[in-house]
Measured scan of single mutants.
Amino acid sequence: MEVRTIKVFTTVDNINLHTQVVDMSMTYGQQFGPTYLDGADVTKIKPHNSHEGKTFYVLPNDDTLRVEAFEYYHTTDPSFLGRYMSALNHTKKWKYPQVNGLTSIKWADNNCYLATALLTLQQIELKFNPPALQDAYYRARAGEAANFCALILAYCNKTVGELGDVRETMSYLFQHANLDSCKRVLNVVCKTCGQQQTTLKGVEAVMYMGTLSYEQFKKGVQIPCTCGKQATKYLVQQESPFVMMSAPPAQYELKHGTFTCASEYTGNYQCGHYKHITSKETLYCIDGALLTKSSEYKGPITDVFYKENSYTTTIK
């Protein structure tokens, strides 16, 4: 009895394709271990004539594949690729409408935090270190965002349907971005203890939790000093293409032309909904596939993004 075979390709990165001759009487799992086709788990399936010449994702289970996976995804987590594939199996079914010149995501599976993050990423200057993220990001900007969303979920250790947080998501993504040249110098002034300067680099240099107003941050924000008295913390120097200011959701007025974009969060910790506000020729609110415009805006804002380049204080 002759062994019926077909020729397929296996890959971990969709760049390096490895030619395989597979036995049609055995499952993919018996031949390769966990195997995925377009995100779908085909591990328990036997090869079919229609699979001839198709590319299958496999887990990096030998040295060659491990090197290829690390170079593309910059992670050695053995569960990463499987999590990416199972997320992709959902995100490829989502709709990605162009809204006001940006790629958004039609609401499904509690994905409003991903839509808000995706919209924000198209408006701030950011370059990702893992080629996987950078490639998928370019495709997302062009309207094909399924891979990018699935990668975000995998890097953030999230599953489809789980509630997510924009600030946490951005923080994970910033860790995989090139923020080497970003720098922030802060000064804390206390009447009792004097003053202390701190220099922050990388992710810490672009994120701040405690106030939404970048102007206020430049002037000074009140913080408790270690001595128990009130101290003032203010920005001395900022070198970065953008800054992200966050605070627990509270009524906040966004003035046209003073910011790049913002995240609105309605609801409580267990259950809520994100919308995205962007400042173009007027203010726009993007909620999944829905767009509304207004000249002014007041609502429960939790993150505001500002364009920056270089700032030095005039406070002496």
Rank of each mutant, 00 (worst) to 15 (best):
Y155K: 03
T159L: 12
E253W: 04
N187D: 06
Y214N: 01
T199Y: 07
E125S: 07
D77V: 04
Y208M: 06
T258E: 14
A132P: 02
V22D: 04
V12S: 06
L235F: 00
V99I: 15
T278Y: 13
E144T: 07
C190Y: 07
S294E: 11
S79G: 13
D180N: 15
G33Q: 02
I152M: 12
K54A: 14
Y208V: 03
T292F: 10
L121N: 02
R167N: 02
V67G: 14
A154S: 07
G257C: 05
S246L: 00
E204F: 06
Y234V: 08
P130W: 03
K95D: 15
P47Y: 02
Q237T: 08
P300D: 07
N100P: 05
A154W: 08
L118T: 03
Q175F: 00
K280T: 09
R4E: 14
V188E: 00
I277Y: 00
S295C: 06
K316T: 13
Y138D: 15
C182F: 08
V203A: 11
T159D: 04
C190L: 05
S294T: 14
K93T: 13
M24V: 12
P47A: 12
L114C: 01
F70Q: 11
G202N: 00
K93Q: 12
N157W: 05
K255P: 06
V236P: 01
L151G: 03
T232C: 01
C193N: 05
G299I: 01
N157C: 15
T198Y: 13
P248G: 06
Q237G: 04
P224L: 12
Q20D: 07
M26L: 14
K183C: 08
Q251F: 14
V236T: 03
F174R: 01
I105N: 02
C149W: 09
L151V: 05
I45N: 14
Q195G: 07
I6L: 12
N49I: 13
L37P: 04
N187T: 09
Q216N: 10
I124M: 04
E168K: 13
T120Y: 08
K280L: 14
L88V: 08
H273T: 03
V185A: 03
V185T: 08
K229G: 15
S240P: 00
C227K: 02
E204G: 12
Q222G: 10
L151T: 01
Q98F: 15
L114V: 06
